[in-house]
Protein backbone atom coordinates (compact mmCIF):
# COMPACT_ATOMS: atom_id res chain seq x y z
CA UNK A 1 0.00 0.00 0.00
CA UNK A 2 1.08 3.55 -0.74
CA UNK A 3 2.32 5.64 2.16
CA UNK A 4 0.64 8.90 3.10
CA UNK A 5 3.58 10.75 1.54
CA UNK A 6 3.17 8.84 -1.72
CA UNK A 7 -0.58 9.35 -1.72
CA UNK A 8 -0.14 13.08 -1.24
CA UNK A 9 1.98 13.25 -4.39
CA UNK A 10 -0.69 11.68 -6.59
CA UNK A 11 -2.98 13.81 -8.73
CA UNK A 12 -6.11 15.01 -7.05
CA UNK A 13 -8.93 13.37 -9.04
CA UNK A 14 -11.77 15.16 -7.27
CA UNK A 15 -10.88 18.83 -7.45
CA UNK A 16 -11.54 21.42 -4.81
CA UNK A 17 -14.24 24.00 -5.38
CA UNK A 18 -17.11 21.52 -5.26
CA UNK A 19 -20.17 22.45 -3.25
CA UNK A 20 -20.32 19.72 -0.62
CA UNK A 21 -20.79 21.07 2.92
CA UNK A 22 -17.91 21.95 5.22
CA UNK A 23 -17.26 18.92 7.39
CA UNK A 24 -18.94 16.50 4.97
CA UNK A 25 -17.41 13.04 5.14
CA UNK A 26 -17.86 12.29 1.45
CA UNK A 27 -14.98 14.23 -0.21
CA UNK A 28 -12.15 12.73 1.88
CA UNK A 29 -13.59 9.25 1.27
CA UNK A 30 -13.87 9.75 -2.48
CA UNK A 31 -10.43 11.33 -2.79
CA UNK A 32 -8.78 8.49 -0.91
CA UNK A 33 -10.55 5.82 -2.89
CA UNK A 34 -9.81 7.41 -6.28
CA UNK A 35 -6.14 7.59 -5.29
CA UNK A 36 -6.19 3.93 -4.34
CA UNK A 37 -7.13 3.12 -7.96
CA UNK A 38 -3.64 4.25 -8.91
CA UNK A 39 -4.45 4.39 -12.64
CA UNK A 40 -7.29 5.04 -15.10
CA UNK A 41 -10.63 4.98 -13.35
CA UNK A 42 -14.22 5.61 -14.47
CA UNK A 43 -16.98 6.31 -11.97
CA UNK A 44 -20.70 6.70 -11.67
CA UNK A 45 -22.66 8.22 -8.83
CA UNK A 46 -26.24 7.72 -7.74
CA UNK A 47 -28.36 10.82 -7.30
CA UNK A 48 -27.47 12.38 -3.98
CA UNK A 49 -25.14 14.81 -2.21
CA UNK A 50 -22.03 13.68 -4.08
CA UNK A 51 -23.64 14.07 -7.48
CA UNK A 52 -25.35 17.39 -6.79
CA UNK A 53 -22.37 18.85 -4.98
CA UNK A 54 -19.76 18.02 -7.62
CA UNK A 55 -21.42 18.71 -10.96
CA UNK A 56 -23.44 21.85 -11.25
CA UNK A 57 -23.22 22.58 -14.97
CA UNK A 58 -21.03 23.97 -16.48
CA UNK A 59 -18.68 22.96 -13.65
CA UNK A 60 -17.44 19.52 -12.71
CA UNK A 61 -15.12 18.52 -9.90
CA UNK A 62 -14.37 15.19 -11.59
CA UNK A 63 -11.04 14.83 -13.32
CA UNK A 64 -11.97 11.32 -14.40
CA UNK A 65 -14.72 10.17 -16.79
CA UNK A 66 -17.89 10.26 -14.72
CA UNK A 67 -21.60 9.75 -15.20
CA UNK A 68 -24.73 10.23 -13.18
CA UNK A 69 -27.92 8.84 -14.66
CA UNK A 70 -30.46 8.30 -11.86
CA UNK A 71 -30.95 7.44 -8.21
CA UNK A 72 -31.58 3.70 -8.01
CA UNK A 73 -29.30 2.47 -10.74
CA UNK A 74 -25.63 3.25 -10.03
CA UNK A 75 -24.85 -0.48 -9.98
CA UNK A 76 -26.73 -1.07 -13.24
CA UNK A 77 -25.06 1.92 -14.90
CA UNK A 78 -21.59 0.75 -13.93
CA UNK A 79 -22.57 -2.74 -15.17
CA UNK A 80 -23.18 -1.23 -18.60
CA UNK A 81 -19.94 0.75 -18.62
CA UNK A 82 -17.84 -2.18 -17.44
CA UNK A 83 -19.49 -4.47 -20.00
CA UNK A 84 -18.85 -1.95 -22.79
CA UNK A 85 -15.22 -1.92 -21.70
CA UNK A 86 -14.97 -5.71 -22.04
CA UNK A 87 -16.83 -5.65 -25.37
CA UNK A 88 -14.66 -2.92 -26.89
CA UNK A 89 -11.46 -4.44 -25.53
CA UNK A 90 -12.38 -7.80 -27.06
CA UNK A 91 -12.91 -6.05 -30.39
CA UNK A 92 -9.55 -4.32 -30.20
CA UNK A 93 -10.98 -0.83 -29.84
CA UNK A 94 -9.32 -0.39 -26.45
CA UNK A 95 -5.63 -1.29 -26.14
CA UNK A 96 -4.99 -4.71 -24.60
CA UNK A 97 -2.64 -3.27 -21.97
CA UNK A 98 -5.04 -0.57 -20.82
CA UNK A 99 -6.52 -1.46 -17.45
CA UNK A 100 -9.44 0.69 -16.31
CA UNK A 101 -11.02 0.41 -12.85
CA UNK A 102 -14.72 1.03 -12.31
CA UNK A 103 -16.36 2.53 -9.24
CA UNK A 104 -19.99 3.22 -8.39
CA UNK A 105 -20.65 5.65 -5.54
CA UNK A 106 -23.97 5.88 -3.74
CA UNK A 107 -25.30 7.21 -0.46
CA UNK A 108 -27.22 5.03 1.97
CA UNK A 109 -30.56 6.00 0.43
CA UNK A 110 -29.30 5.15 -3.06
CA UNK A 111 -27.75 1.90 -1.87
CA UNK A 112 -29.62 0.40 1.11
CA UNK A 113 -33.05 1.44 -0.19
CA UNK A 114 -33.85 2.42 -3.75
CA UNK A 115 -30.67 1.01 -5.29
CA UNK A 116 -30.64 -2.36 -3.50
CA UNK A 117 -32.12 -4.34 -6.38
CA UNK A 118 -29.68 -2.97 -8.96
CA UNK A 119 -26.81 -3.55 -6.52
CA UNK A 120 -27.88 -7.13 -5.88
CA UNK A 121 -28.19 -7.79 -9.61
CA UNK A 122 -24.76 -6.37 -10.41
CA UNK A 123 -23.12 -8.33 -7.57
CA UNK A 124 -24.77 -11.56 -8.69
CA UNK A 125 -23.70 -11.06 -12.32
CA UNK A 126 -20.14 -10.59 -11.17
CA UNK A 127 -19.15 -7.39 -12.93
CA UNK A 128 -15.64 -6.21 -12.21
CA UNK A 129 -16.26 -3.06 -10.17
CA UNK A 130 -16.17 -1.52 -6.72
CA UNK A 131 -19.39 -0.27 -5.19
CA UNK A 132 -18.78 2.31 -2.50
CA UNK A 133 -21.60 3.35 -0.21
CA UNK A 134 -21.05 6.51 1.80
CA UNK A 135 -23.39 5.96 4.71
CA UNK A 136 -24.39 9.17 6.47
CA UNK A 137 -27.49 7.58 7.91
CA UNK A 138 -30.33 9.40 6.14
CA UNK A 139 -31.50 11.09 2.94
CA UNK A 140 -29.38 14.15 3.62
CA UNK A 141 -29.60 15.62 0.12
CA UNK A 142 -33.39 15.93 0.28
CA UNK A 143 -33.37 17.23 3.84
CA UNK A 144 -32.63 14.49 6.37
CA UNK A 145 -35.34 11.88 5.86
CA UNK A 146 -34.95 8.44 7.43
CA UNK A 147 -33.47 5.63 5.35
CA UNK A 148 -33.05 1.99 6.26
CA UNK A 149 -29.50 2.91 7.34
CA UNK A 150 -30.67 5.52 9.85
CA UNK A 151 -29.55 4.67 13.40
CA UNK A 152 -32.00 3.57 16.08
CA UNK A 153 -34.06 6.44 17.58
CA UNK A 154 -32.49 9.01 15.29
CA UNK A 155 -34.46 12.22 14.85
CA UNK A 156 -35.02 12.81 11.12
CA UNK A 157 -37.63 14.85 9.26
CA UNK A 158 -39.66 11.70 8.55
CA UNK A 159 -38.94 9.98 11.86
CA UNK A 160 -39.12 13.03 14.09
CA UNK A 161 -38.60 12.75 17.83
CA UNK A 162 -42.22 13.55 18.67
CA UNK A 163 -44.32 13.61 21.82
CA UNK A 164 -45.36 9.99 21.35
CA UNK A 165 -42.73 8.43 19.07
CA UNK A 166 -39.09 9.14 20.01
CA UNK A 167 -37.43 9.07 16.57
CA UNK A 168 -36.75 6.10 14.29
CA UNK A 169 -38.11 2.89 15.78
CA UNK A 170 -36.27 0.32 13.68
CA UNK A 171 -32.74 -1.01 13.86
CA UNK A 172 -30.67 -0.23 10.78
CA UNK A 173 -30.43 -2.65 7.89
CA UNK A 174 -27.12 -4.53 7.91
CA UNK A 175 -26.25 -3.98 4.29
CA UNK A 176 -22.68 -5.24 4.53
CA UNK A 177 -23.97 -8.66 5.60
CA UNK A 178 -26.51 -8.63 2.77
CA UNK A 179 -23.72 -7.92 0.30
CA UNK A 180 -21.57 -10.66 1.85
CA UNK A 181 -24.46 -13.09 1.29
CA UNK A 182 -23.89 -12.60 -2.45
CA UNK A 183 -20.56 -14.40 -1.98
CA UNK A 184 -18.60 -11.53 -3.48
CA UNK A 185 -14.83 -11.85 -3.24
CA UNK A 186 -14.46 -8.79 -1.04
CA UNK A 187 -16.66 -6.60 1.16
CA UNK A 188 -15.64 -4.31 4.00
CA UNK A 189 -16.68 -1.53 6.33
CA UNK A 190 -14.42 1.47 6.75
CA UNK A 191 -14.34 4.99 8.12
CA UNK A 192 -12.56 8.13 6.84
CA UNK A 193 -10.85 8.83 10.20
CA UNK A 194 -8.75 5.70 9.70
CA UNK A 195 -7.32 6.70 6.32
CA UNK A 196 -4.82 3.89 6.14
CA UNK A 197 -7.46 1.21 6.81
CA UNK A 198 -9.77 2.80 4.21
CA UNK A 199 -6.95 3.14 1.65
CA UNK A 200 -5.84 -0.42 2.18
CA UNK A 201 -9.37 -1.74 1.75
CA UNK A 202 -10.00 0.37 -1.35
CA UNK A 203 -6.74 -0.76 -2.92
CA UNK A 204 -7.55 -4.38 -2.17
CA UNK A 205 -11.10 -4.05 -3.49
CA UNK A 206 -9.94 -2.38 -6.70
CA UNK A 207 -7.34 -5.02 -7.40
CA UNK A 208 -9.59 -8.01 -6.89
CA UNK A 209 -11.29 -9.41 -10.00
CA UNK A 210 -15.06 -9.30 -9.57
CA UNK A 211 -17.57 -7.24 -7.64
CA UNK A 212 -16.34 -5.67 -4.40
CA UNK A 213 -18.04 -3.49 -1.85
CA UNK A 214 -17.08 -0.85 0.69
CA UNK A 215 -19.52 0.55 3.21
CA UNK A 216 -18.01 3.73 4.62
CA UNK A 217 -19.21 5.78 7.58
CA UNK A 218 -19.70 9.35 6.41
CA UNK A 219 -20.35 12.06 9.01
CA UNK A 220 -22.88 14.73 8.06
CA UNK A 221 -22.88 17.93 10.13
CA UNK A 222 -26.19 18.99 8.55
CA UNK A 223 -28.12 15.85 9.37
CA UNK A 224 -26.35 14.90 12.57
CA UNK A 225 -26.59 18.44 13.96
CA UNK A 226 -22.88 18.51 14.71
CA UNK A 227 -20.00 20.93 14.20
CA UNK A 228 -18.13 20.59 10.87
CA UNK A 229 -14.80 20.43 12.68
CA UNK A 230 -15.98 17.41 14.71
CA UNK A 231 -16.76 15.15 11.74
CA UNK A 232 -13.59 13.06 11.74
CA UNK A 233 -13.68 12.83 15.55
CA UNK A 234 -17.27 11.56 15.34
CA UNK A 235 -16.33 9.04 12.66
CA UNK A 236 -13.68 7.73 15.06
CA UNK A 237 -16.21 7.58 17.92
CA UNK A 238 -18.64 5.56 15.78
CA UNK A 239 -15.87 2.96 15.49
CA UNK A 240 -14.53 3.18 19.06
CA UNK A 241 -18.05 2.69 20.45
CA UNK A 242 -18.41 -0.30 18.10
CA UNK A 243 -21.51 1.18 16.44
CA UNK A 244 -19.58 1.00 13.16
CA UNK A 245 -17.06 -1.85 13.36
CA UNK A 246 -14.22 -1.91 10.86
CA UNK A 247 -14.02 -5.34 9.28
CA UNK A 248 -13.64 -7.09 5.99
CA UNK A 249 -14.84 -10.33 4.45
CA UNK A 250 -12.36 -11.66 1.95
CA UNK A 251 -13.23 -14.84 0.08
CA UNK A 252 -15.75 -15.64 2.78
CA UNK A 253 -13.44 -15.16 5.76
CA UNK A 254 -14.36 -12.40 8.18
CA UNK A 255 -11.68 -10.33 9.82
CA UNK A 256 -12.13 -7.42 12.20
CA UNK A 257 -9.49 -4.94 11.05
CA UNK A 258 -9.62 -2.73 14.13
CA UNK A 259 -10.52 -3.63 17.68
CA UNK A 260 -10.70 -0.68 20.08
CA UNK A 261 -8.39 -1.22 23.08
CA UNK A 262 -11.16 0.10 25.24
CA UNK A 263 -14.71 -0.06 23.90
CA UNK A 264 -16.23 3.35 24.58
CA UNK A 265 -19.81 3.81 25.80
CA UNK A 266 -22.22 4.50 22.95
CA UNK A 267 -23.22 7.71 24.72
CA UNK A 268 -19.85 9.21 23.77
CA UNK A 269 -20.86 9.04 20.11
CA UNK A 270 -24.52 9.95 20.58
CA UNK A 271 -24.17 12.89 22.96
CA UNK A 272 -22.50 15.41 20.61
CA UNK A 273 -25.11 14.72 17.92
CA UNK A 274 -28.28 16.81 17.85
CA UNK A 275 -30.22 13.98 16.18
CA UNK A 276 -30.04 12.05 19.49
CA UNK A 277 -30.74 15.02 21.79
CA UNK A 278 -34.11 13.61 22.86
CA UNK A 279 -32.34 10.52 24.24
CA UNK A 280 -30.50 12.61 26.83
CA UNK A 281 -33.56 13.20 29.05
CA UNK A 282 -34.04 11.06 32.17
CA UNK A 283 -37.37 9.64 30.91
CA UNK A 284 -35.67 8.31 27.77
CA UNK A 285 -32.81 6.67 29.64
CA UNK A 286 -34.28 3.23 28.87
CA UNK A 287 -33.99 3.94 25.15
CA UNK A 288 -30.29 4.65 25.53
CA UNK A 289 -29.90 1.37 27.41
CA UNK A 290 -31.75 -0.50 24.68
CA UNK A 291 -29.56 1.11 22.00
CA UNK A 292 -26.39 0.20 23.93
CA UNK A 293 -27.58 -3.40 24.39
CA UNK A 294 -28.16 -3.82 20.68
CA UNK A 295 -24.74 -2.35 19.82
CA UNK A 296 -23.17 -4.80 22.31
CA UNK A 297 -25.05 -7.69 20.77
CA UNK A 298 -24.01 -6.81 17.20
CA UNK A 299 -20.38 -6.31 18.26
CA UNK A 300 -20.36 -9.65 20.05
CA UNK A 301 -21.85 -11.32 17.00
CA UNK A 302 -18.96 -9.93 14.97
CA UNK A 303 -16.36 -10.98 17.55
CA UNK A 304 -17.77 -14.50 17.42
CA UNK A 305 -17.24 -14.54 13.66
CA UNK A 306 -13.79 -12.97 13.64
CA UNK A 307 -11.34 -15.12 11.70
CA UNK A 308 -14.04 -17.56 10.64
CA UNK A 309 -15.29 -18.62 7.23
CA UNK A 310 -18.90 -17.46 6.90
Amino acid sequence: MATLKELSKQDELLSGGHRLCAGCGIPPIVRLVLRAANGPVVATTATGCLEVGTTIYPYTAWRIPWIHSAFENAAATISGIETAYRALKKRGRIPEDKNIKFIAFGGDGGTYDIGLQALSGALERGHNFLYLCYDNGAYMNTGIQRSSATPFYSNTTTSPAGKVIPGKQEWRKDLTRIVVAHNVPYAAQASPHNWSDLSKKAEKALNIEGPTFLNVMSPCPLGWYTKPEDSIKLAKLSVDTCYWPLYEVENGVLKITYKPKEKKPLLDWLKPQGRFKHLMTPENRHLLDKFQERVDLEWQRLLDLDGKRL
Binding site: V42, G80, I81
Partner: peptide, 10 residues
Protein backbone atom coordinates in the same frame (compact mmCIF):
# COMPACT_ATOMS: atom_id res chain seq x y z
CA UNK B 1 -29.66 1.86 -17.11
CA UNK B 2 -27.02 -0.59 -18.33
CA UNK B 3 -27.75 0.43 -21.94
CA UNK B 4 -27.18 4.05 -20.92
CA UNK B 5 -23.90 3.21 -19.17
CA UNK B 6 -22.69 1.15 -22.13
CA UNK B 7 -23.74 3.74 -24.72
CA UNK B 8 -22.05 6.51 -22.74
CA UNK B 9 -18.96 4.29 -22.76
CA UNK B 10 -19.03 4.36 -26.57
Amino acid sequence: SACIGAAAAG
